[in-house]
Amino acid sequence: MVQAHHATGPEDLYATPPPWDIGHPQPALQALAEAGVIRGRVLDVGCGTGEHALMAADLGLDAIGVDLASAALRTAKDKAHDRGHVVRFLQRDARNLAELGESFDTVLDCGLFHIFGGNDRTAFVDSLRSALRPNGRYFMLCFSDRQSNEGWPRVHRVSRNDVHAAFADGWHVDSIEPTTIEITTDPAGIRAWLVAVTRI
């Protein structure tokens, strides 16, 4: 889920199982899979231990996951092997997806966008544009501005206006819906947005 961009950050997040690593896809993204809107070649950015890339593979889709945390990527590769899926998991910075040299129809993001602010957020959105084909779709789960920051120091609380500002140029914001990110430490979960954006 969360991919930090600080030098010491990514591995710290997976030194012990993080609360967002729930062992299965987030229900909000699973619902998209069941609705048939996750299509074509799929990129899972900030993939963590790989549940959403593996969810795409369950649909028979070609899926790739990228993250900075090598410990999480090792777990993701083990899961793929155990489940009999061929999914590539690569150690890459999501702010430079052009380095992949590949194009995707769908990008999934569970908890990465809200890590970035300022120039990092701009770089990430530009990076998404380089990876998504025209009419490709980006689906994001992020912290809502309705959620307290307490206990989540690296996370930006995201408003609807933040989403529209980030995707104002060359994108169409299709929907911003209130939802929940499940975590292991609180049955109420985290108040979140499920965002769908299309690259124009």
Rank of each mutant, 00 (worst) to 15 (best):
R74D: 11
A15S: 15
A35Q: 14
N135E: 07
D82P: 06
L43H: 01
A35P: 02
G23C: 03
Q147E: 14
G23T: 07
R199H: 01
G84I: 05
H114Y: 11
V155M: 09
L97G: 12
S103K: 06
V37P: 04
R133G: 02
A168D: 12
V155D: 02
P27V: 09
L132W: 00
T75G: 07
V125L: 02
L141D: 06
I190N: 01
G170L: 01
G48C: 04
P178V: 08
A71R: 15
R133M: 05
D105W: 00
V45M: 12
L29E: 07
A57E: 02
V158Y: 15
A196F: 08
R88W: 03
A72K: 02
W152P: 01
V42K: 06
D12K: 14
L68E: 05
L128V: 05
A69Q: 04
V45C: 12
L141I: 14
F139K: 03
V163S: 08
A98F: 03
N149Q: 13
E11N: 11
I115Y: 06
G189I: 07
C110W: 10
V125G: 04
V42C: 11
A165I: 12
V125M: 02
L68D: 07
L32G: 04
P25F: 13
I190W: 11
L73C: 08
A15D: 14
A35S: 15
H52T: 08
L141G: 01
L132Y: 00
D169F: 00
R74K: 05
V87H: 07
N96L: 12
R137G: 02
E102W: 00
V87Q: 05
G60C: 10
T184H: 12
V87I: 04
R154D: 10
G189T: 09
G111F: 10
D120Y: 01
D174Q: 12
H6S: 13
A188M: 13
L112H: 06
D67L: 06
R83N: 04
V45F: 07
A192G: 02
E182P: 00
G40E: 05
W20Y: 09
L68Q: 12
L29C: 04
A94G: 14
Y138W: 14
H114E: 00
H164R: 15
D44W: 13
L32A: 11
L128Q: 03
R121I: 12
I181Y: 05
G9F: 02
A131M: 15
S127W: 00
A57D: 01
R191I: 08
Q26L: 08
